[in-house]
């Protein structure tokens, strides 16, 4: 087994291939996105997996970017909030957050939106209670929770229950 203190990392972020040399293995995916790739939409709220502000999609699954060593993402595909929209056309979840006033200060919003987009793919929109439970990994101190549930429900195309 070959141990190194600096690594070459190749990964795909928002459809773009990146190759980073001389990567310190201590760098988390979150800090890689923010400090190296300057993709600052993904937020650092706690850095301990306790708030969900850093939620991104890793190979299509929602995860906390602060809990991942970047070096372990070799060959993987990452989608961040910057890569969710299709060009200028907002993702339905993004539009629904605007339509339903699903944010205030906006700091947790990228994480909320990424979580919501994944949740809909996962199919956890059977009821408002199910949405609430499966959105509980994203803290919102402005407490836009009811509006977030409305936005997710609308984006999932489900009528009010």
């Amino acid at each position: 087994m070959n141990f190194h203190d600096r690594h070459l990392l190749r990964l795909r972020v928002n459809g773009e291939d990146h190759s980073l040399s001389d990567l310190d293995p201590r760098v988390t995916l979150l800090d890689l996105l923010r400090e190296r790739l300057h993709l600052t939409g993904t937020k650092k709220g706690c850095n301990f997996g306790e708030c969900g502000a850093c939620t991104v999609h890793l190979d299509g699954r929602r995860v906390n970017a602060c809990m991942i060593l970047a070096v372990s993402c070799e060959g993987r595909e990452v989608t961040t909030i910057e890569g969710l929209a299709d060009g200028d056309a907002l993702h339905p979840v993004q539009q629904a957050f605007i339509d339903h006033d699903g944010f205030q200060c906006g700091f947790c919003t990228p994480g909320q939106v990424m979580s919501a987009a994944a949740l809909i793919e996962e199919g956890h929109t059977g009821s408002d209670a199910e949405i609430r439970e499966w959105m509980s990994g994203n803290l919102c101190r402005c407490s836009a929770y009811p509006q977030i549930v409305e936005a997710v429900r609308a984006a999932a195309g489900r009528a009010s229950q």
């Binding site: 997996g49 939620t55 995860v63 809990m67 996962e122 994203n138």
Partner: peptide, 9 residues
């Protein structure tokens, strides 16, 4: 346990 995101990891 934990949150949906953490349970994915």
């Amino acid at each position: 346990a934990a949150s949906p995101q953490l349970r994915n990891l």
